[in-house]
């Protein structure tokens, strides 16, 4: 018997500027929908922080949030409760400890500033770094995206490589949002021979998630990202979910050279869950390379 894992505490790393205002508005709406608490996190970019500086910074952060919430929400619709967390240095220096100390369930961040072509390389790198640092799921918002009810969630996955704990967390998240969840696997032409394995894995997952509003799809497409991107566009996806152990896919998703993923820079928020995979990833990232280099136990014939 499994218990519902709820998203109760959302950490929002933000700067006190226009991008921060948009992110805060989104965070307020999302927390309101989920019935969650917000933890607003600001890194002061100084080497250290006295208690007085910290108090000042918290006061500024609090006034900033109150101003945004009072402007964006009318009196009848109260934004989510929030607390402020301030640390010295950069966000990446202390986010790991903050996530642990405050028992954060989800990190909500913006994908950074845009240049005319999409995300800046620096912003993409920063986002991928945070995703790599924290153990909880990370939700990344395209810059300037406005909140809209998340009704249609797509989890791009491999049916044969699942971690039940992660799968149920994702299903619980969809349930908490009262959204429909679609599990989609994209496979290449060369994998046709394994279609039977994929289908039986899909049926097994269907059984596990029985009673929940979940749809399963198998799609043939040469490139995984292209397949996910096209599917997301065609089904008017509100949120794309990935479960991965490395940030190779993220780097590609956020790459400005890859036009097919532009929707993720401009329209579709993305959530990543940390999952240790049994199979190596398609990009053969450092994680997979290290795994492959480890000596395999020799098979013995009795």
């Amino acid at each position: 018997m499994t218990t519902l894992s709820e998203t109760k505490r959302i950490l929002v790393p933000l700067d006190l500027n226009e991008t921060g205002e948009d992110l805060l508005y989104y965070a307020g709406q999302l927390a309101h929908t989920l019935g969650a608490e917000l933890y607003l996190f600001h890194a002061c970019k100084t080497n250290d922080l006295t208690f007085t500086q910290q108090s000042n910074c918290i006061q500024k952060l609090r006034s900033f949030a109150e101003r945004v919430f009072s402007r964006e929400f009318n009196a009848s619709k109260v934004a989510a409760p929030f607390d402020c967390v301030v640390r010295p240095g950069q966000i990446s220096d202390s986010i790991q400890a903050v996530v642990q100390d405050y028992q954060i369930d989800l990190v909500l961040m913006d994908a950074g500033t845009h240049d005319s072509k999409g995300l800046t390389g620096e912003a993409a790198e920063r986002t991928a770094k945070i995703m790599d640092l924290v153990s909880c799921p990370v939700m990344v918002l395209p810059a300037a995206v406005r909140y809209k009810k998340l009704k249609n969630l797509v989890f791009a996955t491999d049916f044969t490589d699942q971690d039940q704990r992660v799968l149920f967390r994702i299903a619980d998240f969809a349930q908490q949002l009262k959204a429909r969840l679609t599990l989609v696997q994209v496979y290449g032409e060369e994998e046709r021979s394994q279609l039977c394995t994929y289908k039986s894995a899909m049926l097994a997952l269907e059984k596990q998630l029985k009673g929940r509003e979940v749809i399963f799809r198998l799609l043939e497409e040469e490139d995984v990202l292209e397949g996910i991107s096209e599917f997301s566009e065609a089904t008017a996806t509100d949120l794309l979910i990935l479960a991965t152990q490395d940030n190779y896919l993220m780097e590609r998703l956020f790459s400005t050279n890859y036009m097919k993923t532009m929707a993720f820079h401009t329209r579709i928020p993305l959530v990543t869950y940390r999952q240790h995979k049994k199979k190596p990833c398609s990009g053969c990232c450092m994680n997979c390379k290290n795994k492959q280099e480890q000596p395999q136990p020799e098979a013995t014939i009795q």
């Binding site: 250290d48 006295t50 208690f51 007085t52 500086q53 108090s55 000042n56």
Partner: peptide, 17 residues
Amino acid sequence: TLGTGNCIFKQGEKISF
């Protein structure tokens, strides 16, 4: 409430509290 060894303020820092 502060733990041991916390710096409340530093000499030269702007007074606000």
